[in-house]
């Protein structure tokens, strides 16, 4: 039984990083405003959201299975508090950190209409921190580190995200490269001292 938990934890962890990779790439795709991957814009956006929710389910399974696993000796507060674990605290701590960031990103996204676009966007940028932390966590911890297949999957994920980020930073990313940037004119901010 305990072996089954361990196998499930490892498997769900690997599937999670693959899903999160897909989520990140779809997120970048939906930011472009171009129909990406042969899909209309709104479909990219919906797929991004649904893949993210699926990834959350997998990550939750990953964490819950470890909670009951005798090897990992995960305590409840290890789910929230990084780098305090008994089993490979640094590598496990990265997992906790990625999990915390993921929860923040998901919760703010679900409450987006209440929080406002600005707060949501600032928190959403943490995805660029969450994903690499999760990837490194997967490479460093568990009994699969050093196996050729985990390295292959991880490198494939890294290459995919790197390519997407490269596209994001390229000039061809925006649909309308010649479009003027929206920015409040500085002259409207001047001379605003209260006189009395």
């Amino acid at each position: 039984m305990s072996d089954a938990l361990w196998y499930f934890a490892r498997g769900s962890g690997v599937v999670s990083i693959v899903l999160l990779t897909i989520v990140v790439v779809l997120g970048i795709g939906s930011r472009s405003g171009k129909p990406a991957f042969g899909l209309p814009r709104f479909a990219v956006s919906l797929l991004h959201r649904n893949a993210a929710l699926l990834a959350v389910v997998l990550v939750a399974g990953h964490v819950i299975s470890l909670l009951f696993d005798p090897y990992a000796q995960l305590r409840l507060f290890d789910i929230v508090l990084p780098f305090a674990g008994n089993y490979r605290p640094v590598w496990q701590g990265l997992g906790t950190l990625a999990f915390d960031l993921l929860v923040a990103i998901i919760v703010t996204s679900l409450l987006r209409h209440r929080l406002g676009a600005r707060t949501w966007r600032v928190v959403h940028w943490l995805a660029y921190l969450c994903w690499p932390v999760a990837l490194v966590h997967g490479l460093g911890t568990g009994s699969d580190n050093g196996t050729w297949w985990l390295w292959t999957i991880s490198i494939a994920c890294a290459v995919t995200v790197a390519a997407a980020v490269g596209w994001r930073l390229s000039t061809g990313f925006s649909r309308f490269p010649a479009r003027a940037e929206r920015r409040v004119a500085p002259r409207l901010r001047k001379e605003l001292e209260e006189v009395r």
Binding site: L188, R189, E191, L192, E194
Partner: peptide
């Protein structure tokens, strides 16, 4: 009466820009 300096810009007198300026967020 509290006095406020209006920036010398075309849209600075627009109603919501006036309110924004007095609220300290620029005459936007």
């Amino acid at each position: 009466v509290t006095l406020h300096a209006a920036p010398d810009a075309f849209v600075s007198g627009e109603e919501s820009a006036v309110v924004s300026a007095i609220n300290g967020r620029g005459a936007v």
